[in-house]
Simulated scan of single mutants.
Amino acid sequence: MTETGSGYSAYQIALHWITAALVLFQLLFGESMTTVVDAADEGQPVSALDQTLGSAHYWIGLAILALVVVRLIMRLVSGAPKPVEGGPSWMQIAARLSHGLFYLLLLATPILGLLAFYVGDPWSDIHSLNKPLFIVLISVHALAALFHQFWIRDGTLKRMLAPDR
């Protein structure tokens, strides 16, 4: 793996923010899939909106899985920028752990969703457990980015907003 410059490429930044937007959509509208599956199990009709959102949840989950695979390949080929110098080692360890957990969740959640859709329980229960994990991890990630931007002022957030030149 090669190290990149001090920041991320435009492609890495685009993949990050597209993935983030798709995950946010899933978190906000994913319950429609549960509504659709439960209605099908009970032989009940489902609204057109829930049907559309349930279908979108399925396809966006596949898109997230594909984008994460692309991100991982890009990371293996191009590397990632070194952490900003000067921070305590525990912050760098926490950053590596949280990024690793993000990749694990971003890969496992769509796979578990497919298992839930095609196989059923217990996969749907396990898939559903990832929602609160994502919410906590995203919250910590966003707070850490804001902490770096406004408290430490080390340019960490800027690296994910503007490509390395």
Rank of each mutant, 00 (worst) to 15 (best):
R153M: 03
S98F: 11
A14L: 15
L137R: 03
A63M: 08
L106Q: 02
F29P: 03
D41I: 08
S128Y: 03
S6Q: 13
A145H: 05
A95R: 11
P122G: 08
V140P: 07
I111E: 05
E31V: 10
V84L: 12
S9E: 09
S98Q: 13
I111W: 05
D121I: 02
R153L: 02
S55D: 12
D38M: 11
F134Y: 15
V46D: 05
W123K: 02
L24E: 05
W59C: 03
I138A: 01
A10N: 09
I152E: 02
F150K: 05
G5E: 13
Y103K: 08
G120M: 06
H99A: 01
S32Y: 03
M91I: 07
G155H: 09
N130E: 10
A20I: 09
I60S: 00
Y11E: 14
A20E: 10
F25E: 05
G113N: 06
Y11M: 13
L161D: 08
A108M: 05
H16E: 12
P110F: 06
S98H: 05
A21K: 08
D164V: 07
V69P: 01
Q26Y: 04
A108G: 01
M33T: 00
P88D: 13
P110C: 07
S89M: 10
S98L: 13
I138T: 01
L53M: 14
Y8T: 09
R153S: 03
Q149E: 15
A10R: 14
A145E: 08
G155M: 09
V119S: 02
Q12H: 04
P81R: 06
L143C: 13
E31F: 12
L161W: 07
A95H: 13
Y11C: 10
V119R: 01
L106E: 00
R165D: 15
L133K: 00
A162K: 15
E3Q: 13
L146M: 14
T4W: 06
Y118K: 04
R75P: 04
S89Q: 12
I152D: 00
H99G: 02
V69D: 02
S32L: 05
A39S: 14
G61H: 04
Q51R: 14
I93E: 03
A14F: 14
Y11I: 13
I64C: 02
S124H: 11
A80R: 14
F134K: 06
D154L: 04
H16V: 10
H99T: 01
I13Y: 05
L65F: 15
A14V: 13
F25D: 05
T19F: 03
M74E: 12
A94P: 02
A10G: 11
P122Y: 06
L114W: 09
F102A: 12
G5V: 07
F25I: 11
T4L: 14
L114K: 01
W17E: 09
P45F: 10
A14E: 04
